[in-house]
Design a protein around this nucleic acid. Structure first.
Lengths: 333, 333
DNA sequence: CGATATGTTGAGAGCGCTTTCAAGGAGGAG
DNA sequence: CTCCTCCTTGAAAGCGCTCTCAACATATCG
């Protein structure tokens, strides 16, 4: 089994350069290409990535950084779907992927990534308001695509959705369907999306001439927080007929608390979520939510990075993906 | 900012070789080491991985292959915990990791991995009985550590548990606690663990002088299969007072079906699982199961691979991790 | 004091590939 | 028929690092 370009060159009676051209689609006469191709196939040749990388300066490998608490990474379907999307897009372009999860501190992770010195670029989730990892990456020599973005990231490449507008939309829906006492169980306080969704919620209320005082309850995007906040609301005897949860996980928690208290959805309380993760439609009743196509975001992030790598000079890319209000039974009138 | 070894060499007034020695811990006089170290730090030098790889033949990157249907990868906490364990161990050794999930066919994935031509080794889940991916990897030039193993893998390096013995143990427990009509909801038919656990189940019954005819019901390790099989059992009016589920997921499904039918655990039916995933202790009632420390398996797999890479000549490593019967309320007498 | 062992260093040969550069050949224009 | 252009190809220079080998300096020993 031939191993190097030189071996192949000898086998096919041409020079190493020509074989390289055949492999990389350089200008070669049809006859030569044929001949080399034959040898190439019969010999099951695999180019040495390291050598190629060294010579060309590109590795065909990108980093994916999802620095969240380890258990969360997978317990939270959001990250799973996102990763799946990225993986999918990347592998269809034959790009390799290295993964960094949150099992080290951000500083260590950053060092680790930069030290890898082999990545063509990175995709990093950037939802946390103050994130040294994201800042460090952006400050590095490496092309970076953010999933989500902070105000400070206006000039970076990112893929995101308009959280504020989407939250307004779903809150409007709640108002329109006649709900009077609407509460919002927010996302993580330190997250951009959590903050923006809360802002959207408030705006919608304000636009309808209602007050949002005390209507935003702090959650953290987990099932538990949805459960706890709802439970407390019930225990405190607060009057409410609609809950807009920061994400689907929290909505699921709210479902549990409501069920436990014997409160019917949607008859007594309407519940809305955000994300439209796979399980949203399978809840009982099916959950009204905002579809943001998490998998698509992953796809898009990968695509964006690859395009950025191909044409760096065209400057940063900003992609705002559309969202869609998905009305299901949980908010029926 | 100095970029190459040569730059550093010039800056510190020694030869490139010496700088390399300092970096890699070769024999250097203390004085020289100090001097070079200073330059090294002040210059924030990062070695070029590709060059290093090319020259040394090692990349410091290992592949992790978990070729399972995409949604399963994360929906199934087993894989999540396994991956977390691997990740953790790897990152503590500053080893990079590339991940392959099941979003391509096994053939494509194999090609992809082999084509990467840069990995020092791979860790691959090998629970499927007939797995071209595993076979292809084993047949390749690359060091491989399997998580789980088939009969045919006796001479490979692997990390596994004794499924058969563990299943016998938990079945014994069911027998000992006075259960008379015990059924087993098996794992995937095409999986080694599924088959071995069923064998263990049968052996335990046989040892106790009971028949296992018709006592093994085919499941597939999912929540749904646990639910469906149990539901059918109830619907068919079959008499049973204990269920040994192939894994915790299936047990969770069984819980649902039993709850729905108003059957009490453990008073009327005892339920046992396998894996002791995080949620097992949080079910109501807490689930009796076999703890196999999935995270530890991941850790061990990573450690095993790294040790294999360090000392290839010492031959294949086989690690059989201990399991532990964790008795909780779901099988109380 | 010369000979041998020990420790430290630099020169240089690759690792396998990409990519210029220039040479050679074929074909078209004048 | 000659000149120029375009196409195809090979030679060779690196990419940045590791590692062997030999040289030199110093230390040890007889």
């Amino acid at each position: 089994m031939a191993r190097t370009l030189d071996d192949l060159a000898e086998l096919s009676g041409v020079s190493r350069a020509t074989v390289s051209r055949v492999i990389n689609g350089g200008p070669v006469s049809e006859a030569t290409r044929q001949r080399v191709m034959e040898v190439l196939e019969s010999t099951n040749y695999r180019p040495n990535l390291a050598a190629r990388n060294l010579a060309s300066g590109k590795s065909g490998v990108v980093g994916v950084v999802m620095h969240v608490a380890a258990p969360l990474t997978f317990a939270d379907a959001y990250f799973a779907e996102l990763l799946t999307g990225i993986c999918d897009s990347l592998s269809s372009q034959a790009a390799g992927m290295m993964l960094w999860l949150g099992n080290r501190t951000k500083e260590e992770t950053l060092d680790n990534i930069l030290g890898m010195g082999m990545l063509d670029g990175v995709i990093v989730t950037a939802d946390t308001i103050d994130d040294p990892l994201v800042d460090g990456l952006r400050a590095s020599y490496m092309p970076v695509v953010l999933v989500g973005h902070r105000r400070a990231d206006r000039d970076a490449s990112y893929v995101d959705i308009d959280h504020e507008a989407a939250a307004m939309g779903i809150t409007d829906h709640l108002i329109q369907t006649g709900r009077r006492h609407i509460f919002h169980i927010s996302g993580r306080l330190n997250s951009v999306s959590g903050r923006d969704r809360a802002i959207g919620f408030r705006s919608a209320l304000k636009k309808a001439g209602r007050s949002s005082d005390g209507a935003v309850l702090t959650g953290d995007y987990t099932d538990e927080s949805g459960y706890e906040v709802t439970r407390k609301l019930i225990a405190d005897g607060v009057e409410f007929d609609a809950l807009f949860c920061g994400n689907d996980n929290a909505a699921r928690g709210a479902y549990r608390a409501l069920a436990q208290a014997g409160i019917s959805i949607p008859d007594e309380v309407a519940v809305a979520g955000f994300d439209d993760l796979d399980f949203a439609s399978e809840l009982d009743p099916p959950l009204t939510t905002v579809r943001q196509g998490v998998g698509d975001i992953g796809h898009e992030a990968a695509r964006t990075l690859l395009s950025l790598l191909d044409n760096p000079e065209t400057g940063p890319r900003r992609v705002l993906l559309p969202t869609e209000l998905v009305v299901r039974r949980s908010t029926a009138e």
